[in-house]
Design a protein around this nucleic acid. Sequence first.
RNA 1: UGGGGCGUGGCCAAGUGGUAAGGCACGGGACUUUGGAUCCCGUAUCGAAGGUUCGAAUCCUUCCGCCCCAGCCA
Length: 561
Amino acid sequence: MAEILDFIREVVAEDVRSGKHEGRVATRFPPEPNGYLHIGHAKSICLNFGVAEELGGTCNLRFDDTNPTKEEVEYVDSIKESVRWLGFDWGDREYYASDYFDRLYDYAVDLIKAGKAYVDALSADQIRQYRGTLTEPGRNSPHRDRPIEESLDLFARMRAGEFADGALVLRARIDMASPNINMRDPTLYRILKVPHHRSGDTWCIYPMYDYAHPISDALERITHSLCTLEFEDHRPLYDWTLDQLDVPSHPQQIEFARLNVSYTVLSKRRLLELVEGHDVSGWDDPRMPTLVGLRRRGYTPGSIRDFCRRIGVAKKESVVDVAMLEHCLREDLNRWVPRRMAVLRPLRVVIENYPEGQAEEVDVINNPEDASAGTRKVPFSRVLYIERDDFREDPPKKFYRLAPGREVRLRCAYFLRCTGVVKDAKTGDIVELRCTYDRATRGGNAPNGRKVKATLHWVSATHAIPAEVRLYDRLFSVESPGAGGRDYKEDLNPDSLEVVKPCYLEPGLAAATVGEHYQFERLGYFSVDLDSRDGQLVFNRTVTLKDAWARIEGRNLVDSR
RNA sequence: UGGGGCGUGGCCAAGUGGUAAGGCACGGGACUUUGGAUCCCGUAUCGAAGGUUCGAAUCCUUCCGCCCCAGCCA
């Protein structure tokens, strides 16, 4: 079945068919290096690189670095790493708008000579006043009709550093009465006596996005310039700029809706605030929707690409359910991630009829989805740990795990029956379970065909290794943080991080290395965090497994209210 | 109240005049040595109202709602 094309792919495919742009396809991903990439950028990356790849074209990585006051090399490095991690390759086509500063300057001179731009001496404040409002036209600047020679001279001196920041500005001469505010003589160049992370102090005037972007696209002979909806109003300016100049090509700008995901925020400003306000541990905090955060959390590039494919590309502003992202993740991980046993909240179990001091090894399946993954040996002995949640002294309806008198299966080991509960004399807390096992059920099946309703994961107390596990929940507790005029920080989920320690892992996990993925059976997918040290493993819970019991239990809670 | 966009089930999203794809979520069932996975089954008349037409989500009209734009940010 042919994949359904989104409207952008349709346009590009049609252009290839009709021979527009000589049938070429050239796109670009143009991040501004002023922050880390997030899942929203992934949508754009997948679109731009995807379209190019599918139609035999190319996709450039271009840093839109025209504002030295906000941009840093730290960001370009991380952006490159994230794009690569996502699985895309820009070859040698790594560009920077700053590489075009010379040509951009020359084009500006052309504009002035053609009477299409002028140097204005109005202050930022005055320009705002002259701009008019949404419903009233603007007024011409008194300097709008300054002689061309004068503008040329002033512009050269702006470049030479003769004026202070903000003293002068180069403006396009378009139409102060345009209903499109972007066309009311937009600023093209401003003075910024700030060193640039690439061009150093070569320049003290810097081009604005609306001017630099179309020309950069044209110089790279981009065919389709894909951007988000908020730039739709800028398209007339994009086209105007290219129409005035003798540039190598005239790319077509097409806008699509940016991605929003429920229970998180996706704006650089807010993400920066979370980092600077220490609401998270950094850009790569596993709860962050940044690519470095998702990566550390244990998300795979493939799952993110799949997600971007599934959400589609359209012009409707939408909020995609984070459950969709999690679904893509689980689907990927389920296929290949090795299973292991780990007990997060241990409850001690003593098997009274199992010989003291004895131990044996049982064969445990590595991945039921993949027979070739084989089995491994896991030690079993008289004292085990099971999950506290897997025992209820007074089991509610539909709870079919362990309870007094009940028999369950220990995964790939034996049937186990609970014969007694040991409690702390003072607190009444359950501290240990007394049980018996049926040695005839080795491997997990009863010779007499007897069935059990539950299978529990377990770990041998004497063999298990301790570890720290970090459990994450959504960063925000509401679907759209900050909706209804609230401060989005009020919506932060106070329980988004829970550190559990010590947890007990089957011994083979001692060899786990940073970044590895595992499924802890019945609990979820986990990955080894970079905070791990020798003998002190730290795991991040990437995502839980779907949990039917939790749903039933939750539903009952709601029902009983 | 200027301009530019957008409105298809809870969330995405196909559909471009011929009688509403698919995915996620949700509910039910089968199967199961992860209450996982897998497999079945189930849920919309398309923002509203008029109109054109044998026939409209698709064309026309009007209305309603939501988003973006008044940075020397991108």
